[in-house]
Design a protein around this nucleic acid. Structure first.
Lengths: 188, 188
DNA sequence: TGTACATCAGTGAACGCGCGTTCACTGATGTAC
DNA sequence: TGTACATCAGTGAACGCGCGTTCACTGATGTAC
């Protein structure tokens, strides 16, 4: 039966939110359209009233996740100093919680490799999101703009690599060692 | 028709080598047993004379790739100083070639995320390999052992993250910026 | 060394399964008057 | 405001396809004597 415009918008947001979570948890190819729709309390056939394809959903989900990340950094900046905002970002990024819960975390360690392989609008959304995160970090680091950008780029690379390694070695000592080393050497 | 022991060993190595390349290029789930066998100039049915399952092949391929990486570091160390060996490792890691050719490169950016998700022997092989790489790097860095290990851990995280980001943004300026920033700030 | 036979590496068809996408259908919603 | 009808969000079956794995078969290899 037909749903109201408002109900459709709610379905749309639910699909996007569940996709954003499931894609980060299991990967894009490893998450089926039917699973996403079930998580959104819908049946799979209705998916195509909302998105033209699974690829389009993946690109939209990536864009939404990155927008949320940059938005969060800006929100924190309203009540804290730029330096404190970056420090909080780094501490959260390198937390055990972030390792354990990819569905709520940064999409770069979770989906970066896959997005690059998939190319097209998915890789485009990933690239645009990464650029925005580096912009947001660089603008909050001190020093000349060039230096701040380079520091932001290296910082993000370290964070992403630490999470990839920690998740690949989950439960083993080496993963914890990498996380701890990065935390301490990034000054936390 | 039955093949000789020697011929079987050659097939085994060919399957392992093609799997190691294809898994890194496309991911484990995205590479079919049939594709690997075709690349090894065999038909897919014969696969199970060599490996009990695709998972077992993936674990074996990861172990073989990591053994090659650590072996290469040791080989270079025979003709160069520890410091030069690490510098060469870093320079190769952050090269444009490494970004463009994942099939020949480090499995951590290519397969780390997927290995963590798959768990079991695949994640075990990844964790063991990562531990060996960090050992190999740490033993070639100067200073107290604790500090050297922490530096090695952070270094590897930065390298891995830089490649994940560069591949996710392939062709876009932001990827090159991250690579350049990491190269320069790691002293190359 | 030669012979007879068991083994098994590799082939190619087949299996059951899950996937992304399509489609006919239902009935509440939105719109035109 | 009320009515008649077109729209379309959501349902659930179906589609074609590719996958990992199994299997009967072939014939060269390895072994026992």
């Amino acid at each position: 039966m037909r749903q109201s415009r408002e109900a459709k918008a709610e379905s749309h947001e639910a699909i996007l939110a569940e996709a954003a979570r499931l894609f980060r948890e299991r990967g894009i190819a490893q998450t089926s359209v039917a699973e996403i729709m079930q998580a959104a309390a819908l049946t799979h056939g209705g998916f195509y009233r909302h998105f033209a394809s699974k690829d389009e959903l993946a690109a939209a989900a990536l864009a939404a996740i990155f927008a949320g990340i940059v938005g969060e950094l800006e929100t924190v900046s309203e009540r804290e100093s730029p330096r404190a905002a970056v420090e909080e970002y780094v501490a959260t990024y390198l937390s055990d919680d972030h390792v354990r819960r990819p569905g709520l975390g940064c999409p770069i360690p979770a989906l970066g490799t896959e997005a690059g392989r998939l190319g097209g609008t998915i890789a485009g959304a990933a690239a645009a999101g990464i650029a925005k995160v580096i912009d947001a970090l660089a603008s909050r680091l001190p020093g000349p703009k060039q230096t701040a950008r380079a520091r932001a780029a290296q910082l993000l690379a370290t964070l992403v690599g630490a999470i990839v390694i920690a998740r690949a070695t989950e439960g083993e000592a080496i993963g914890r060692e990498v996380l701890t080393a990065c935390r301490e050497r990034l000054g936390l």
